[in-house]
Design a protein around this nucleic acid. Structure first.
Lengths: 159, 159
DNA sequence: TTAGATGCAAATGGTTTGCATGCGT
DNA sequence: ACGCATGCAAACCATTTGCATCTAA
């Protein structure tokens, strides 16, 4: 489902891009993502997508995203942010994470992986071998849809 | 729900009530639990504790607990329910579980175990060997405080 | 008597929704 | 033009808080 993350494919893009060659490439991939998902490349949506997907794996809340948008001089209403966050999630290019009952986090990394929770922030667990957990068989008539692992960390004992 | 007058507050009777010897024992254990936690054995708290801990492992929300209390003719305000739920959690006799961003579940089983999430309901995973997952070492200065695993299930493919 | 517990209502805060306007196709 | 997208504000809803009133010790 998830498309390849926007890694550095071809930094020296076509010089004909009116917005700058460096930006052009990833920006184009973003438009492709939206096209495949059937989402219009709106200004706000492109801005949000840019903030989300042009810098590697990220975990953020709607509020954080709004702050970043503002900082980038891209005023977007909270409602629109939520709309897009959910549309992205539905399109499989974003992942929703429930870490506590108060905030909803979104993860730009849709690949199978899990998280450390440190001081209220999410950190990817850098190896995926965790799926080796010997799960008992699910109840009859059911199949595993997703496995979510959150490892809560605390300050190490003074030792 | 209107508060009952001080007169009509017959909950389920104190320990001396003719509830049977089997029940009496667990009720005593409940009082012990509270005593150890430094929690006063008030009517409401005992009632909530009774609903929570006298029937084995349970997963419930504040609302569910309130409904059960009502059904048992034990009027308890929602605020008090939340208070006690959190106090129990702090005392280590209850466990808080974040399964989605909207509701907070509480688990009467505080032993290390994990959950299936089926159709919005939590089900204990009947094997504890899952902790064998080979976690990568936590970041420097941090230690694992808890590992939470939620396995989301969906209807199995028709096959 | 007194610190803790309870109840009620109001406040909170993240998220959602209704509806008029704006913009991509 | 058509229809999705956006913005604003009000609506929602689970949870929390303020405060006056009880109650266990």
């Amino acid at each position: 489902m998830p498309r390849r993350s926007a890694k550095s494919r071809k930094i020296d893009g076509p010089a004909k891009a009116p917005l700058g060659a460096l930006v052009g490439c990833r920006f184009h991939e973003l438009r492709m993502k939206f096209a495949e998902a059937g989402l219009r490349p709106t200004r706000q949506r492109l801005s949000l997508g840019w903030l989300l997907f042009s810098r590697g794996s990220r975990h953020l809340t709607a509020e954080i995203l709004q702050d970043e948008a503002q900082a980038s001089n891209v005023p977007v209403s909270l409602a629109t942010i939520y709309n897009n966050l959910h549309q992205f999630t539905g399109a499989g290019i974003l992942r929703e994470i429930a870490v506590d009952g108060t905030r909803t986090y979104f993860d730009t990394n849709t690949l199978r992986h899990h998280h450390f929770l440190v001081d209220g922030a999410l950190v990817d667990i850098p190896e995926v071998a965790i799926d080796l957990l010997n799960l008992p068989p699910p109840p009859a008539g059911k199949a595993v849809a997703a496995v979510e692992v959150v490892v809560r960390l605390r300050d190490a004992p003074a030792a």
